[in-house]
């Protein structure tokens, strides 16, 4: 099965592994290296995915009429636990892994200009 470079790129964007280059007001393209697969990597990935998808296509031949899906190896009923407040991780500990922290919050790049 062939999977095109554009298809791989579309999926990589869905998976937040790539972000399209953007053009600024002067028509300059943003630098691609950190957020885009290069052409060689895309071609390699397309070939590898094509081979894997070729292999898994054998599933299509299996007759699964009236067969329910299995979502877990052991189907367990959903359980309720008592609705009780219990101690949890304190704020400092919870924020201890944040790459950038400001006060009691995680800092992120602004999303509104």
């Amino acid at each position: 099965m062939t999977i095109s470079r554009d298809e791989v790129r579309r999926i990589a964007r869905l998976a937040h592994l790539e972000y399209p280059r953007v053009q600024d007001d002067q028509g300059h393209w943003s630098e691609p290296e950190a957020v885009c697969f290069d052409e060689q990597a895309l071609d390699r990935l397309a070939t590898e995915l094509g081979r894997i998808l070729d292999h898994v296509r054998d599933l299509q031949a299996v007759d699964v009429r009236d067969v329910p899906p299995t979502r877990h190896g052991v189907e367990l009923p959903s359980r309720w636990r008592p609705d009780e407040a219990k101690p949890s991780i304190d704020r400092d500990a919870g924020l201890s892994g944040a790459p950038v922290r400001i006060g009691d919050a995680v800092a992120v790049p602004k999303i509104v200009e």
Binding site: V56, L59, Q60, V62, V64, V67, P68, P69, T70, R71
Partner: peptide
């Protein structure tokens, strides 16, 4: 969805 059904088999 197909794989989940084959998983049942």
């Amino acid at each position: 969805a197909q794989a989940q059904k084959v998983r049942t088999l």
